[in-house]
Design a protein around this nucleic acid. Structure first.
Lengths: 347, 347
DNA sequence: ATTAGCACTCGAATTTGGTGAGTGCTAATA
DNA sequence: TATTAGCACTCACCAAATTCGAGTGCTAAT
């Protein structure tokens, strides 16, 4: 919106300098510091004048009279937008770290979260791919013993769901076979959304005379698919927030950490992120912009990765507003393409 | 060891009173308070004398000269031992809360952790049952498509493991059938420990000419069983520690919370707890006694629950040393028998 | 347009003194 | 002999007073 032009080259430079130093120190930055730091040779007085302007425009603010300035959310926003526009490159290294022993997706994602946390010194989260528009690839019932049947369902992206079904009366092998046929022919290739109560009712009907016995089975299958629609979220480096004084007073720490523990709120973040279709798949929420109320004093940077089949997951970094956006964006992009690569190769 | 007798009835009562009040207030407690509080009518001066003795014996200590006394680890220990000996009763309520929608074990355990955390205001953890000496109940390979096979393994206690196996060359249906037979006849009823490399080699041999193709399968199966031997741990109420000033300074909070996040340390706690065969299955670690270094300023109370088949899991409560042991022990015993009941019914 | 200079502001850190809870010791008491 | 009252002393804690300094806005000189 009001970019470079609207601000004036020099004001822009100064703002940039202010944010940069603040990112490093975490302390309000004063005119004198900037006058020495920046390469444009200006006295502190001049800087002060410019600062006064920048403050009026809402890009920076004073915690109290006679303190230095800190960037406002609006200031951060400008800064990040600039970064996002400029940087679009680089991705190697860190590759090897990940590939070893990553045959199980679960492990892979946990590890991704950990690597990212170590790499950035912020708190991180990685969600399992959500099966929006996911399709059933394979479905099978097997007898475990006389009273128990296990249903195995494989979804696109090789996500596996199980459900053990307790039978009141035993099911003959022939009937089991029939059921399997029926299930496979009917449900194979269907997306989860397409399986509704009507369909299930029709299936029960087709199952014919066994329908009472069989009812459970369908219910169980439907249940296995539906219920387990909860997204898993792995977190790491939560305690990194203690490294940033502005987040580590009891109040804030408590809020942030509990958001991390009760994954509910993170799930919201994930769904919201996924909903928002973006070009690069990277989003930055600064302060109040975040969907997670508990993190209103943080910045949250998210990226989506894809798994083919339209399955998407989210990676997120949560840190103080003065996070090192440059580094974070870079790391996130790397990891994003790592994951994309791995999944598209191995699936 | 040095119980009632060695201490003298009156000293014991005073110690009890000190601990009790300290549990409530969290503040060092002085002689005057005790002289008013306890029913033995003694002046503060007398109490002071006794306190001096108790301190010399190591049951209480002074944070600094001219402050009240607080219980030492040794003092807590005495107190807890007394409690454990006396109390062995009561368990109802709270039952209904749990049973709803608890068909999946995972959910059940998560919920257990949450209920317990709400109930006690401490941090809690619940581990999934560890499959020490667990046996294979059912094993099956199924073709998902031409290149992929899914292995499903059901262990005692209905723990399910999956593994997707990518094939280089397709496997005929007949061979699949043969393989299934072989696996089931050989492995059914075996405990995980009994499956070693030798056995797998023999199996590969029996598979005959397909052995090269089939090798992968066995490796994968073995892998699925072994690798996933990691115990899952669910935590809840981590942020409760912020309610106790003595634990919520940055340093401590950081340590404790990170122990909760990187489950590694908790896993150690679990295994150690399970190893220790106790009569009631309840253990109390005070301060330094705990196996988890990060929790050296806490008390940790654990209980084990059983699942038949020799599978055991752990429930734990982590709080300040001045935790309400009475309440905690009671709650833990309840939950313990809840879980026992539920599992023995539904399995 | 830039800068030097100065008076002023205000948070943070330091100092100071007072308060009170708690102690140990001693001497009086039952 | 065990208990208690009394007293001097200690020391963490709090609040007010003080100092300090980084930073500002404004004005006048360059």
């Amino acid at each position: 919106m009001l970019a470079r032009e609207a601000l004036g080259e020099r004001k822009l430079t100064i703002l940039h300098a202010i944010i940069k130093t603040y990112l490093e120190t975490g302390e309000p930055v004063g005119s004198r510091t900037i006058s020495k730091y920046s390469d444009l040779n200006l006295s502190s007085a001049t800087i002060r004048n410019e600062m006064a302007d920048l403050e009026e425009l809402g890009y920076i603010l004073q915690p109290h009279t006679s303190a230095g300035r800190i960037p406002s959310d609006k200031g951060y926003r400008l800064y990040v937008d600039m970064l996002m526009k400029e940087k679009e490159q680089e991705l190697n290294e860190m590759q090897e770290q990940m590939l070893e022993k990553a045959d199980k997706m679960e492990h892979l994602l946990k590890q991704a979260a950990r690597v990212l946390a170590n790499n950035t010194n912020y708190a991180t989260m990685v969600s399992t791919p959500s099966s929006s528009a996911n399709r059933i690839k394979f479905i099978q019932l097997s007898k475990v013993d006389e009273e128990q049947i296990i249903a195995v369902i494989v979804l696109g992206g090789n996500v596996i769901k199980n459900k053990i079904i307790n039978m009141e009366e035993p099911l003959s092998n022939e009937n089991l076979l029939k059921l399997n046929m029926l299930l496979n022919t009917t449900l194979n290739g269907m997306s989860i959304e397409e399986i509704n109560l009507g369909l299930i009712a029709r299936l029960k009907e087709q199952a014919g005379i066994h329908s009472e016995v069989v009812g459970n089975v369908f219910d169980a299958v439907a249940d296995a698919i539906q219920v387990d629609e909860d997204i898993q979220i792995y977190t790491s480096g939560t305690t990194n927030i203690f490294k940033y004084p502005e987040l580590s007073d009891k109040q804030s720490a408590q809020e942030i950490i509990s958001a991390f523990e009760e994954k509910q709120q993170l799930t919201e973040l994930v769904t919201q992120t996924l909903a928002q279709e973006e070009n690069t798949g990277i989003q930055v929420y600064i302060g109040d912009e975040t969907p997670v109320q508990n993190m209103k004093d943080c910045s949250v940077v998210t990226a989506t990765y894809e798994l083919g089949d339209g399955m998407k997951g989210t990676i997120g970094i949560i840190g103080p507003k003065r996070m090192d956006y440059e580094h974070v964006l870079k790391s996130l992009k790397r990891l994003q393409s790592e994951l994309d690569a791995i999944f598209h190769k191995q699936v």
